[in-house]
Design a protein around this nucleic acid. Structure first.
Lengths: 158, 158
DNA sequence: TGCATTTAGTTATATAGAATAACATTGTTA
DNA sequence: TAACAATGTTATTCTATATAACTAAATGCA
């Protein structure tokens, strides 16, 4: 039983008709921005597939490693993740043995987040993969200077 | 009965701790790309709130107006929307009287998509709003040249 | 101090976007 | 003509994100 109705990739059809292509993208910054973002995220998913790590999870690990002992709410807020949604995320990372949620010293309600030894090793590996991907992106953008200009413009839109 | 648990905006907490802020964004193109995209889309939603028009719907209308008579699948594919998901989208736009789905001459299976007179008028209004928004973005980016460089870099990532 | 308000974490739930599978109808091609 | 492919469709799933409501604890203030 094979795939009875395989979708062609969007790009296949996209390139099949240039007049449509032009019409779709002309003068729409938001549209191109979204396309680029989806593309970069897709690349991320591919690169991190073997690690079973999604973008949000990676950024959470980076933030905890660089800011050990912070409370859930702080990490969540810094990444623009709602407290409620962060709960599941943190629980999964804890269940995988990558992070620990210790009772905070100064606040009995709060959990202080820390990396485990396994988590640190795992993140180091992930960081290597990420840096390689990032390097690819820089190359595509046209070098470090272009990257800096690009990131600057992204910030201007935020 | 007021909002018993109002969330602070992400930015409020974000700015409350610069060390976290720096850690979150350092060296992560994908992260900043996503932030910028969400921000621009949020602006779109605000601008188009009175029209009750979402980004995908706007791009569909633009594409149909610029390519009248195309089949559903063509429009959907050009925008990277799955056939299946496009059905609801097209039905809603038709229900609002903005587009028509006429039987295609050369293919009894297919629907050829056309704007209605109302749809054209509606889209003209939407285009005005969009152009104003686009102009704001260009200003934020630092002018037309910066916009061109920016869009070029977005294309490089796609 | 005592009481109202706020905050941290949590659970449950809702909504939107995007993806897959399967199907009828029609078109294409070997 | 018989196999295959494409179009539109429905149903379903998955993921991300958002909201409401609750508890326990902390904070503020009169």
């Amino acid at each position: 039983m094979g795939n009875s109705d395989p979708e062609k990739s969007a790009a296949d059809r996209f390139l099949a008709d240039d007049s449509l292509r032009e019409a779709a993208a002309t003068g729409i910054i938001g549209y191109r921005l979204r396309r680029a973002q989806l593309n970069v995220f897709q690349r991320f998913l591919t690169v991190f597939e073997t690690l079973q790590l999604r973008p949000a999870e990676y950024s959470v690990l980076v933030l905890i490693a660089d800011n050990p002992g912070r409370k859930q709410t702080e990490i969540a807020a810094a990444l623009g993740i709602k407290r409620a949604n962060f709960v599941t995320l943190a629980h999964e990372l804890e269940a995988r043995g990558l992070i620990e949620r210790r009772p905070a010293r100064d606040d009995k309600r709060a959990n202080a987040l820390h990396m485990t030894a396994d988590g640190t090793a795992f993140l180091n590996h992930a960081r290597t993969l990420h840096e390689a991907m990032e390097q690819d992106l820089v190359t595509q953008l046209g070098g470090p200077q272009a990257r800096d200009r690009f990131v600057d413009m992204l910030e201007r839109l935020s």
